[in-house]
Amino acid sequence: MKFKHFNIALFLLMALPGLCQTMEGVVTYERVYHWSKIYSRLTFLSQEEKDRIKLTWGNDDESKTKMQLFFTPNQSKYTYASDQGTSESGSYSWRQEDYIIFRDYEKESKVEIMEMLGKTYVIEDSLRAPRWKVLNQIKDVNGHVCMLAVTEDTVKKQKISAWFAHDLPISAGPERYFGLPGIILELDVNEGDFVITATNIELKPVGEGIQLPKKIKGKKLTDASYEELISTHISDSMKSHRNPYWSIPY
């Protein structure tokens, strides 16, 4: 039965090029960090320390943020749903860090604006999609039948699982992930450490919402120099017994 569904989904992917030409809209995601799981992977911590962290946090280890993906057939922009972050109780708020990922699929280029390590970086380079492996698995994500694809972040040594919607045939996705024949509606990093799930999908004109800020300030990087920066930071943090992911995206 699963194999039959897989073939049907592939047929639908090939039958939707006309729809792709006019489709645009906004996907809202809930982005969740599970910090006790992330800490359990830090090799400098003893098992006793990991158990103590898990016991201390219990089920209250989640950090949640609303994100949005604006998309058209040729472009996408992923960023915070609001400039202000607010606690679940509403008792306090803060300014969100700079975080915008813009892709131009027609020009095969991208601009990523990330505030991390105490400064803002602007990563400009050509598009380079992850090497995905599409598997014979499907599930429903927010009312859309999605297929599973997997890849690996070789810099952070992370397993990536993405569920993409065959009825939204645009090669967009959250965070730094894209390149599948449908929008990624759920992204799972390291088997539940960090999960991003679509909570709302609106097909509508995106207007200026997809545009980059008129003024972009920050230190310019390429993909190669960004990966070198991240790799060095993780290595130095682990040697110093610090969690590297407090100051960079997971």
Rank of each mutant, 00 (worst) to 15 (best):
T154Y: 03
I201T: 10
D60K: 12
E228R: 15
E124F: 04
S126E: 14
Y99H: 06
T151A: 07
I196W: 07
V122G: 05
E191D: 05
K156A: 14
I138E: 15
S36Y: 01
S93C: 08
K4R: 12
R95E: 13
W57D: 09
S91I: 08
I123N: 11
H34V: 14
G118A: 13
V206A: 07
P244A: 06
K37S: 15
S46I: 04
L187D: 12
L117C: 13
K4S: 05
P181W: 08
D51R: 00
G218T: 00
L42W: 12
S82R: 12
S225G: 10
I53C: 11
K119W: 06
W35L: 15
S46L: 07
T56M: 13
K239V: 11
T72V: 02
S82H: 09
H241L: 12
V32P: 01
V32L: 01
M116L: 04
H233V: 12
P174E: 00
P130K: 06
D61G: 03
D83I: 04
N190R: 09
V27M: 03
G207D: 09
G179V: 05
L221M: 10
W94Q: 09
A129K: 07
F178N: 13
L212R: 09
E49S: 13
D236G: 03
S247P: 06
G90K: 07
K37P: 10
E48T: 12
L168N: 03
N200R: 15
M14Q: 10
Q68G: 02
V141F: 13
W132S: 02
P17C: 03
K2F: 02
R95W: 11
S231N: 15
L16F: 03
K139G: 08
T199L: 15
G118E: 13
D60G: 06
G218W: 01
Q137F: 05
D51I: 03
L168Q: 02
P130N: 05
T232S: 13
I230W: 03
I123H: 04
S46V: 04
E49Q: 10
I170L: 15
N142R: 12
Q68E: 07
